[in-house]
Amino acid sequence: MLCSGTPWRTFRWYRGQKHYSGAYWSATTGNLVVYESRLELARVLFADFDPTVRGIMAQPFLLKSLDKGTVRRHIPDYLLLTDHGPMVVDVKPRHQQLSPVVATAFTWTRRAVESRGWRYEVWGEPPEAELANVRFLAGFRREWLFAPGLLGELLLAGLDGATITEAAGCLPRWPEPCVRAAIHHLLWRHDLHTDLTQPLQATAVPAQTLCRSRVGQRRFGSWPRWSGVIRCSG
Rank of each mutant, 00 (worst) to 15 (best):
P175Q: 09
S99I: 00
E176P: 01
S233M: 04
H74D: 03
A138R: 12
P60M: 08
Q17R: 11
Q198M: 11
N133S: 09
A27G: 13
I230W: 11
R141T: 02
R119Y: 07
D67H: 12
L156A: 14
L79G: 01
M1L: 09
I183P: 00
A58I: 03
L45N: 01
K64L: 12
P177A: 04
V134S: 00
E130W: 12
V88K: 00
G30A: 06
F146P: 03
Q201Y: 06
R9K: 12
V71Y: 03
G139V: 02
P127Y: 08
S227C: 02
R9E: 09
G221D: 08
Y24N: 01
R72P: 00
L196G: 02
I183N: 00
S115R: 14
R214G: 13
Q96V: 05
E153F: 05
D90E: 12
D90Y: 01
R38V: 05
L63S: 10
G22Y: 03
R72I: 08
V91A: 04
W13R: 11
I164E: 02
D90N: 12
L45A: 06
W174I: 09
Q97M: 15
R173M: 05
W188K: 02
C178H: 11
A207L: 15
E128V: 14
G139L: 03
L145G: 00
R73Q: 15
E128L: 15
L45R: 12
Q59Y: 04
P206A: 03
G69S: 06
G16V: 01
A58G: 10
F61K: 01
H193I: 11
L137K: 02
S233Q: 11
E125D: 12
Y120G: 02
L154W: 04
I56R: 08
R94N: 10
A147K: 13
D67P: 00
A168R: 10
G124N: 07
D67T: 10
A27Y: 02
A27C: 13
G5S: 14
T107S: 14
Y14N: 05
E153N: 07
M87D: 01
R141N: 08
W123G: 00
E121Y: 05
K92F: 01
D77A: 09
V44D: 03
P199N: 06
G117N: 10
A105H: 11
A112H: 12
V88M: 07
Q217L: 13
L62M: 08
Q201H: 11
N133Y: 09
A112I: 10
